[in-house]
Protein backbone atom coordinates (compact mmCIF):
# COMPACT_ATOMS: atom_id res chain seq x y z
CA UNK A 1 0.00 0.00 0.00
CA UNK A 2 1.14 3.56 -0.65
CA UNK A 3 1.59 5.60 2.46
CA UNK A 4 1.50 8.86 0.48
CA UNK A 5 0.09 9.40 -2.96
CA UNK A 6 -0.02 12.83 -4.59
CA UNK A 7 -1.71 13.21 -7.96
CA UNK A 8 -1.27 16.49 -9.84
CA UNK A 9 -1.27 18.27 -6.51
CA UNK A 10 -1.17 22.00 -7.08
CA UNK A 11 -1.27 24.92 -4.70
CA UNK A 12 -1.28 28.61 -5.54
CA UNK A 13 -1.27 31.36 -2.92
CA UNK A 14 -3.28 33.86 -4.90
CA UNK A 15 -1.09 34.20 -7.98
CA UNK A 16 2.06 33.02 -6.24
CA UNK A 17 3.23 29.48 -6.98
CA UNK A 18 3.32 26.97 -4.18
CA UNK A 19 3.55 23.56 -5.87
CA UNK A 20 2.70 22.58 -9.44
CA UNK A 21 1.30 19.22 -10.55
CA UNK A 22 3.20 17.25 -7.96
CA UNK A 23 2.97 13.50 -8.52
CA UNK A 24 4.64 11.40 -5.87
CA UNK A 25 4.22 8.01 -4.30
CA UNK A 26 5.74 6.84 -1.06
CA UNK A 27 5.30 3.20 -0.13
CA UNK A 28 4.35 2.13 3.36
CA UNK A 29 7.44 1.38 5.45
CA UNK A 30 9.76 3.52 3.31
CA UNK A 31 12.12 6.20 4.52
CA UNK A 32 11.63 8.73 1.75
CA UNK A 33 13.64 11.90 1.25
CA UNK A 34 12.23 15.15 -0.08
CA UNK A 35 14.99 17.50 -1.21
CA UNK A 36 14.82 21.06 -2.37
CA UNK A 37 16.17 24.50 -1.60
CA UNK A 38 14.25 27.00 0.52
CA UNK A 39 11.11 28.16 -1.25
CA UNK A 40 11.01 25.17 -3.59
CA UNK A 41 7.64 24.03 -2.22
CA UNK A 42 8.60 21.32 0.30
CA UNK A 43 6.67 22.83 3.18
CA UNK A 44 3.71 23.66 0.93
CA UNK A 45 3.47 20.02 -0.14
CA UNK A 46 3.66 18.86 3.47
CA UNK A 47 1.17 21.42 4.77
CA UNK A 48 -1.24 20.42 2.00
CA UNK A 49 -0.91 16.75 2.99
CA UNK A 50 -1.70 17.66 6.59
CA UNK A 51 -4.76 19.71 5.66
CA UNK A 52 -3.31 22.96 6.96
CA UNK A 53 -3.80 24.44 3.52
CA UNK A 54 -6.26 23.48 0.78
CA UNK A 55 -4.94 22.33 -2.57
CA UNK A 56 -5.87 24.49 -5.55
CA UNK A 57 -6.26 21.33 -7.62
CA UNK A 58 -5.21 17.71 -7.67
CA UNK A 59 -5.56 15.04 -5.04
CA UNK A 60 -3.59 13.39 -2.31
CA UNK A 61 -4.11 10.26 -0.27
CA UNK A 62 -2.46 8.98 2.86
CA UNK A 63 -2.83 5.25 3.48
CA UNK A 64 -5.47 5.30 0.76
CA UNK A 65 -7.55 7.95 2.50
CA UNK A 66 -8.42 11.28 0.92
CA UNK A 67 -6.60 14.11 2.73
CA UNK A 68 -9.64 16.36 2.72
CA UNK A 69 -12.45 13.97 3.53
CA UNK A 70 -10.63 11.83 6.12
CA UNK A 71 -8.24 14.36 7.55
CA UNK A 72 -8.90 13.61 11.22
CA UNK A 73 -8.35 9.89 10.77
CA UNK A 74 -5.13 10.55 8.85
CA UNK A 75 -3.82 12.94 11.48
CA UNK A 76 -4.45 10.40 14.23
CA UNK A 77 -1.91 8.12 12.52
CA UNK A 78 0.56 10.84 11.63
CA UNK A 79 3.34 12.54 13.55
CA UNK A 80 4.40 15.92 12.19
CA UNK A 81 7.58 17.75 13.04
CA UNK A 82 7.41 21.30 11.64
CA UNK A 83 10.47 23.23 10.55
CA UNK A 84 9.72 26.00 13.03
CA UNK A 85 8.22 25.19 16.36
CA UNK A 86 6.03 27.41 18.50
CA UNK A 87 4.26 26.47 21.71
CA UNK A 88 1.77 28.19 23.99
CA UNK A 89 3.40 30.72 26.30
CA UNK A 90 3.47 29.89 29.98
CA UNK A 91 3.17 26.13 29.51
CA UNK A 92 5.76 23.67 30.71
CA UNK A 93 7.16 21.08 28.33
CA UNK A 94 5.36 18.34 30.26
CA UNK A 95 2.03 20.18 29.89
CA UNK A 96 2.58 20.52 26.14
CA UNK A 97 3.35 16.81 25.74
CA UNK A 98 0.23 15.99 27.81
CA UNK A 99 -1.89 18.39 25.73
CA UNK A 100 -0.63 16.79 22.53
CA UNK A 101 -1.40 13.29 23.85
CA UNK A 102 -4.84 14.38 25.11
CA UNK A 103 -5.68 15.89 21.72
CA UNK A 104 -4.93 12.43 20.32
CA UNK A 105 -6.96 10.80 23.10
CA UNK A 106 -3.98 8.57 23.93
CA UNK A 107 -1.91 7.93 27.00
CA UNK A 108 1.61 8.46 25.71
CA UNK A 109 3.25 9.08 29.10
CA UNK A 110 5.61 6.08 28.99
CA UNK A 111 6.84 6.74 25.44
CA UNK A 112 7.14 10.48 26.14
CA UNK A 113 9.30 9.72 29.22
CA UNK A 114 11.51 7.40 27.21
CA UNK A 115 11.98 9.95 24.40
CA UNK A 116 12.66 12.81 26.82
CA UNK A 117 15.36 10.73 28.48
CA UNK A 118 16.99 9.90 25.16
CA UNK A 119 16.88 13.49 23.98
CA UNK A 120 17.86 14.86 27.38
CA UNK A 121 14.79 17.08 27.58
CA UNK A 122 13.65 18.55 30.90
CA UNK A 123 9.83 18.42 31.07
CA UNK A 124 9.70 20.98 33.88
CA UNK A 125 11.11 23.83 31.79
CA UNK A 126 8.71 26.49 30.52
CA UNK A 127 8.29 26.25 26.76
CA UNK A 128 8.81 29.98 26.19
CA UNK A 129 12.20 29.80 27.94
CA UNK A 130 13.52 26.96 25.79
CA UNK A 131 16.41 27.31 23.38
CA UNK A 132 15.78 26.57 19.70
CA UNK A 133 17.28 23.09 20.15
CA UNK A 134 15.15 22.24 23.17
CA UNK A 135 12.02 23.52 21.42
CA UNK A 136 12.88 21.18 18.58
CA UNK A 137 13.29 18.29 21.02
CA UNK A 138 9.87 19.01 22.54
CA UNK A 139 8.40 19.04 19.03
CA UNK A 140 10.11 15.72 18.28
CA UNK A 141 8.54 14.12 21.35
CA UNK A 142 5.13 15.52 20.37
CA UNK A 143 5.52 14.03 16.89
CA UNK A 144 6.83 10.63 18.03
CA UNK A 145 5.20 9.91 21.40
CA UNK A 146 2.05 8.31 19.97
CA UNK A 147 4.12 5.93 17.78
CA UNK A 148 2.55 7.09 14.51
CA UNK A 149 2.27 5.04 11.36
CA UNK A 150 3.57 7.96 9.28
CA UNK A 151 6.21 10.49 10.31
CA UNK A 152 6.35 13.72 8.34
CA UNK A 153 9.50 15.59 9.22
CA UNK A 154 10.13 19.07 7.82
CA UNK A 155 13.75 20.22 8.17
CA UNK A 156 13.96 18.18 11.36
CA UNK A 157 17.52 18.82 12.48
CA UNK A 158 17.64 22.63 12.48
CA UNK A 159 18.70 23.70 15.96
CA UNK A 160 19.89 20.26 17.08
CA UNK A 161 23.55 19.79 17.93
CA UNK A 162 25.44 16.96 16.10
CA UNK A 163 25.13 14.49 18.99
CA UNK A 164 21.38 15.06 19.21
CA UNK A 165 21.09 14.80 15.44
CA UNK A 166 22.69 11.36 15.64
CA UNK A 167 20.32 10.29 18.42
CA UNK A 168 17.40 11.69 16.47
CA UNK A 169 18.26 9.70 13.35
CA UNK A 170 18.73 6.58 15.48
CA UNK A 171 15.16 7.08 16.78
CA UNK A 172 13.93 7.55 13.20
CA UNK A 173 15.65 4.34 12.13
CA UNK A 174 14.08 2.45 15.03
CA UNK A 175 10.62 3.78 14.18
CA UNK A 176 11.18 2.93 10.53
CA UNK A 177 12.30 -0.60 11.39
CA UNK A 178 9.21 -0.94 13.58
CA UNK A 179 7.10 -0.26 10.48
CA UNK A 180 6.61 3.50 10.42
CA UNK A 181 6.83 5.29 7.10
CA UNK A 182 9.15 8.31 7.19
CA UNK A 183 8.80 11.31 4.90
CA UNK A 184 11.92 13.39 5.50
CA UNK A 185 12.08 16.84 3.98
CA UNK A 186 15.45 18.52 4.10
CA UNK A 187 17.90 20.67 2.25
CA UNK A 188 20.74 18.95 4.14
CA UNK A 189 21.50 16.37 1.52
CA UNK A 190 23.75 14.18 3.62
CA UNK A 191 20.74 13.54 5.89
CA UNK A 192 18.79 12.19 2.93
CA UNK A 193 21.74 10.26 1.56
CA UNK A 194 22.44 8.56 4.89
CA UNK A 195 18.88 7.85 5.98
CA UNK A 196 16.61 7.45 2.97
CA UNK A 197 16.24 4.73 0.37
CA UNK A 198 14.42 6.87 -2.17
CA UNK A 199 14.16 10.60 -2.67
CA UNK A 200 12.47 13.22 -4.79
CA UNK A 201 13.96 16.55 -5.77
CA UNK A 202 11.63 19.53 -5.88
CA UNK A 203 12.48 22.79 -7.57
CA UNK A 204 10.23 25.81 -8.09
CA UNK A 205 7.21 23.78 -7.09
CA UNK A 206 7.84 20.87 -9.47
CA UNK A 207 9.24 17.41 -8.86
CA UNK A 208 12.28 17.27 -11.14
CA UNK A 209 13.64 13.87 -10.12
CA UNK A 210 12.42 10.92 -8.09
CA UNK A 211 14.44 7.74 -7.72
CA UNK A 212 16.48 5.59 -5.39
CA UNK A 213 19.11 7.70 -3.67
CA UNK A 214 21.89 5.57 -5.20
CA UNK A 215 20.36 5.96 -8.63
CA UNK A 216 20.13 9.71 -8.22
CA UNK A 217 23.81 9.75 -7.31
CA UNK A 218 24.73 7.36 -10.15
CA UNK A 219 23.48 9.49 -12.96
CA UNK A 220 25.51 10.15 -16.10
CA UNK A 221 27.22 12.95 -14.29
CA UNK A 222 30.83 12.28 -13.22
CA UNK A 223 33.16 14.29 -11.08
CA UNK A 224 36.49 14.73 -12.87
CA UNK A 225 39.67 15.90 -11.15
CA UNK A 226 42.95 16.27 -13.00
CA UNK A 227 46.38 17.82 -12.86
CA UNK A 228 48.07 18.98 -16.03
CA UNK A 229 47.23 21.27 -18.92
CA UNK A 230 44.05 20.52 -20.77
CA UNK A 231 41.84 22.87 -22.77
CA UNK A 232 38.17 22.21 -22.07
CA UNK A 233 36.98 25.04 -24.31
CA UNK A 234 34.22 23.92 -26.63
CA UNK A 235 33.60 20.66 -24.73
CA UNK A 236 29.88 20.46 -23.98
CA UNK A 237 28.70 19.00 -20.63
CA UNK A 238 31.31 20.64 -18.38
CA UNK A 239 29.94 22.32 -15.24
CA UNK A 240 31.00 23.59 -11.85
CA UNK A 241 34.58 24.06 -13.06
CA UNK A 242 37.03 25.04 -10.32
CA UNK A 243 40.82 25.16 -9.95
CA UNK A 244 42.22 24.45 -6.50
CA UNK A 245 45.98 24.25 -5.84
CA UNK A 246 46.74 23.60 -9.50
CA UNK A 247 44.17 20.81 -9.80
CA UNK A 248 41.19 21.19 -12.09
CA UNK A 249 37.81 19.88 -10.86
CA UNK A 250 34.58 19.77 -12.83
CA UNK A 251 31.33 17.86 -13.30
CA UNK A 252 30.84 16.21 -16.66
CA UNK A 253 27.65 14.80 -18.17
CA UNK A 254 28.58 14.89 -21.87
CA UNK A 255 29.84 12.24 -24.28
CA UNK A 256 32.59 10.21 -22.60
CA UNK A 257 34.53 9.61 -25.83
CA UNK A 258 34.78 13.34 -26.48
CA UNK A 259 36.05 13.84 -22.94
CA UNK A 260 38.72 11.18 -23.44
CA UNK A 261 39.74 12.72 -26.79
CA UNK A 262 40.01 16.16 -25.16
CA UNK A 263 42.08 14.80 -22.29
CA UNK A 264 44.32 12.86 -24.68
CA UNK A 265 44.97 16.05 -26.67
CA UNK A 266 46.29 17.73 -23.51
CA UNK A 267 48.97 16.85 -21.01
CA UNK A 268 47.45 14.98 -18.03
CA UNK A 269 49.71 14.26 -15.03
CA UNK A 270 46.99 12.82 -12.77
CA UNK A 271 43.33 11.97 -13.31
CA UNK A 272 40.40 10.70 -11.26
CA UNK A 273 36.84 10.15 -12.45
CA UNK A 274 34.35 9.50 -9.59
CA UNK A 275 30.62 9.42 -8.86
CA UNK A 276 29.47 12.82 -7.69
CA UNK A 277 27.68 12.96 -4.32
CA UNK A 278 24.00 13.76 -4.04
CA UNK A 279 24.73 17.35 -3.21
CA UNK A 280 26.42 17.87 -6.54
CA UNK A 281 23.63 16.07 -8.34
CA UNK A 282 21.14 18.20 -6.56
CA UNK A 283 22.82 21.44 -7.50
CA UNK A 284 22.96 20.20 -11.03
CA UNK A 285 19.18 19.76 -10.94
CA UNK A 286 18.77 23.08 -9.31
CA UNK A 287 20.97 25.06 -11.64
CA UNK A 288 19.67 23.55 -14.86
CA UNK A 289 16.13 23.08 -13.76
CA UNK A 290 16.45 19.38 -14.48
CA UNK A 291 14.02 17.40 -16.52
CA UNK A 292 10.64 16.41 -15.22
CA UNK A 293 10.20 12.79 -14.45
Amino acid sequence: MNAIEMTNLTKFYGKARGILNVNLMVEEGECFGFIGPNGAGKSTAIRTLLGLIRPTSGQARIFGRDIRREKTRILSETGYLPSETAFYPGMKVGDILKLSADLRKKDCAAEARRLCQRLNLDVNRRADELSLGNKKKAAIVCAFQHCPRLLILDEPTSGLDPLMQREFFTIIKEQNQAGATVFLSSHVLSEIQQNCARAAVIREGRIIACDRVEALAQSQTKRVSLRGSVSLDGLPGVRSRTEIDGALHFLYDGDMNRLLQTLAAGNVADLSVTEPDLEEIFFHYYEKGGEEK
Binding site: T72, L75, R104
Partner: peptide, 14 residues
Protein backbone atom coordinates in the same frame (compact mmCIF):
# COMPACT_ATOMS: atom_id res chain seq x y z
CA UNK B 1 -0.30 35.16 15.46
CA UNK B 2 1.51 32.97 17.98
CA UNK B 3 2.31 30.37 15.28
CA UNK B 4 0.66 27.66 17.38
CA UNK B 5 -1.99 26.94 14.74
CA UNK B 6 0.34 24.49 13.00
CA UNK B 7 0.92 22.61 16.26
CA UNK B 8 -2.78 22.49 17.08
CA UNK B 9 -4.11 21.59 13.64
CA UNK B 10 -1.58 18.82 13.10
CA UNK B 11 -3.53 16.94 15.77
CA UNK B 12 -6.62 14.90 14.92
CA UNK B 13 -9.12 17.58 15.79
CA UNK B 14 -11.48 18.65 13.03
Amino acid sequence: KGQTAEFLLAHPIG
